[in-house]
Every structure is written in structure tokens, then in C-alpha cells.
Amino acid sequence: MASPINFRHLYYFWVVAKEGGMARAAERLGMAVQTVSAQVRSLEQTLGHSLFRPAGRGIALTDAGIVAMAHADQIFQLGEQLPAAVREAATGQGLRLAVGIADGLPKLVVRHLLQPALEDPRVRLLCLEDNIEGLLSDLALHRLDVVLSDRSAPANPNLRLYSHRLGEAPLAWYAPASLAGRHAGPFPDCLAQMPVLLPTGQVAVRARLDQWLERSNLRPRVAGEFEDSALLAAFGRSGMGAFPASRWSHEELMHEPGLRLLGECPDVVEHFYLISAERRIQHPLVQRLLQVSRDGAA
């Protein structure tokens, strides 16, 4: 069994790495250089690897030290957040929900998915957008409460993650009225006559859209591909081409003057997942999201 980490030793290592040397770290800590050096050596003995190497007249992190520093940064950043989080919980000033949003997820859908949590007056929402790999790493380190994605968490023996089905929505096609008026005809055949915008292959629904176009014998001219759905819709509204969007986005899209619904393709469905680092959900707002999802599916 590995020896437990002494977090005081880890803190001294972290300060040395931040300050770039033993002497500057000792000055910041108000300690003797020999004491700081001894604490760092104790940490190295616990981990079984050297964390620093000589570099000119100073020291630099080894490969093992770089990894240790990355983890130490996350640990002490969380520590800095602890007093505020405890104070808010104790005084009832807020209920923080940190959500990671996969960068391919339609932004208009995110608000729909999070709406049940927003109805709680105590909520203090923190939304961070990134690629799914970065978000899942932050989730595993408990820097996020949950991750929202258009696909379930990929299998990873190093991460214990749980995917919960949060909902699904069919797609519909939209186009500016000026573009739709120049290419009259029944849907979906009219798509063959106009430029279209599509999500990139990184977005889960792209493969299902390609299959639907193939089944419909449609080979439209693809004028653009976008990973960000909000950007895709913005270029579509500007007149660049017809574009697909979730039916959950319909009300917001119809607020745009001159935008027309071309038609629906109910057999092309976007799936949405809530990914957690715990099987048994404890956060009350996350429990609320899942309960509303289950009630809607019943």
C-alpha cells in the first residue's frame, strides 16, 4: 500500500516550483532553506521519484515534477475555494453548480437542459466550455459537479465516470426566408437546391445527419461546417445556407425576423447526457435535473 501524501510537504514543493528555487521559497515561507529542502526530499521519497533536477545555477522540474505540479495546482486551487464554498453553504447564500459544457453541444439546448436547476433561487451557476477530454479530467478531479455532452463518457480505465441520459430532441431545418423563397419545393427536396451548413464530424449528430441525407437521396452543396452550433446558426441566419437545429431551439430561433422553418426530420435525434463522477448523486440541483428528466421520459 502506498504511503499517504503529506500535504505540508506537497505545499512546500508547490511553493518551490512557483518561486523557481529553494532560497526564494524559503524566504516566502519564512523558513530555513535546509528545512524546505528536507521537506521536498521527504515528498520525493514518498513518491519514489525526483521532482527537481539541476538547471544551470538553479533547479527545474523533472517530468515527474511537472505532473506533480499540475496536480498540486489543482489541489491548492480547490483549497482556496473551500472557505467561500463552506461560507455559502452555512449561510444559505447560494448553491453552487459547476457545469462543464462539451464544445459541440448546442448552446440553446444547454439552457433547456439546465432550466430545472435555474428554478431554484439559491443557484449560483458556473458554466465552463471545453473539449470533452478536458472536461472529464476536471470532473474526475472534482473541479466540476457534472458535464453535459451529446455523447456518453468514453470508456477509460483511469476515470470512474457515470453517464445519465438527460433527454433527446429531433432536428429541424431552418433557412432565411430570402434563401427559402428562391428555392421553392417540398421539404426535404428543397435542400438539394440550396447551400447547407452542417456540424463538423466531431459533433455526434453529424453521422446521423449524413445518413439521413443519404436515405433521402440528397447531395446538397455544403457551404460550411461548424463545431459550435451557435456559430452555425449565426451564419445560417446571415444567409449563408440552410441549417439543422434542435427542436428545443425552435422558440429562440423563431424570434429571428425572416427565419423560416423548412421542415422536421424526426428520425434524426440528438441525445444529451449528464456525466458525473459519482454513481449515487448527492448534489441537490443535479438530483433535480435527473428527476425532471425521468419524469419527462415517463
Score class of each variant (00 low, 15 high):
A25K: 01
A26P: 11
R28V: 15
G30M: 12
M31S: 11
M31F: 05
M31L: 15
T35I: 07
V36C: 05
Q39P: 00
V40A: 01
L43V: 10
T46E: 07
L47R: 01
G48E: 12
G48T: 12
L51E: 07
F52H: 06
R53S: 14
R53W: 02
A55E: 12
G56S: 02
G56A: 04
R57W: 04
R57L: 13
T62Y: 07
D63H: 06
D63W: 05
V67F: 04
M69N: 11
M69L: 14
A70L: 10
H71K: 15
A72K: 07
A72E: 04
D73Y: 08
Q74W: 06
F76L: 12
E80I: 13
E80W: 03
E80G: 09
P83T: 09
A84Y: 03
V86N: 11
V86E: 15
E88M: 14
A90Q: 13
A90P: 00
T91N: 13
A98F: 03
G100N: 06
I101A: 06
I101H: 02
I101T: 02
K107E: 12
K107C: 00
K107L: 10
K107F: 02
L108A: 10
V109Q: 04
V109A: 14
Q115N: 04
P116K: 08
P121W: 03
P121D: 03
P121H: 03
V123I: 15
L125V: 13
D130Q: 13
N131G: 11
G134K: 03
L136E: 13
L136M: 13
S137V: 10
D138L: 15
L139S: 10
L141M: 08
H142D: 15
L144Q: 07
L144R: 06
L144G: 04
